[in-house]
Simulated assay, not measured.
Amino acid sequence: MHYNNSLSMTQSSEQTALAPGYRLAEYTIVRQLSHGGFSVVYLALDDKDQKFAIKEYLPRQLACRDENGDVTVRHELDRDAFNLGLKCFFEEGRVLAEIEHPNVVRVTNFFRANQTVYMVMEYAEGRSLGRELELAGGRLEERRLRNCFAALLAGLREVHLHRLLHLDIKPANIYLRRGGAPLLLDFGAARQTLLRGNERFAAMYTPGYAAPEQYDREQPLGPWTDIYAVGACLYSCMGGGTPQAANLRRQEDRLVPASTLFRYDYSPELIALVDECLSLTPDARPASLMVVQKRLMATPFSAPEERPAPETGNRLVCWLKGLTGRSS
Rank of each mutant, 00 (worst) to 15 (best):
R157C: 05
D80Q: 14
A53C: 01
R74V: 11
V73C: 07
D80M: 09
L86M: 08
F82V: 12
Q115D: 10
L58F: 04
I54P: 01
P102H: 03
V95L: 08
T108F: 05
E141A: 12
R60S: 00
L145A: 06
A63P: 00
G130S: 09
A113W: 15
R74T: 10
R157H: 12
R94M: 06
L161G: 05
M119R: 13
V105A: 04
L133K: 09
H166A: 09
R143F: 10
E125F: 09
R106S: 05
R112P: 01
N103C: 08
L156T: 10
G69H: 06
G126E: 12
P59F: 11
P102Q: 01
V104M: 07
E92N: 06
V95Y: 03
R139V: 08
K87F: 02
A136F: 12
V107F: 11
F110A: 10
L164A: 02
S128D: 04
D70A: 14
D78L: 10
N83L: 14
L164T: 06
N68S: 04
R65M: 15
D80V: 12
C64Q: 12
G126M: 12
G155Y: 08
H166M: 11
M119E: 14
R112H: 12
N109A: 08
R143E: 14
N147M: 14
G93H: 09
R139L: 10
R60I: 00
G85K: 08
L62W: 00
L96G: 01
A150P: 04
V120K: 03
L133V: 05
L133R: 06
F111Y: 09
F90K: 13
C64R: 13
R139W: 13
T116N: 09
N103G: 02
R79G: 01
R163P: 02
E100V: 01
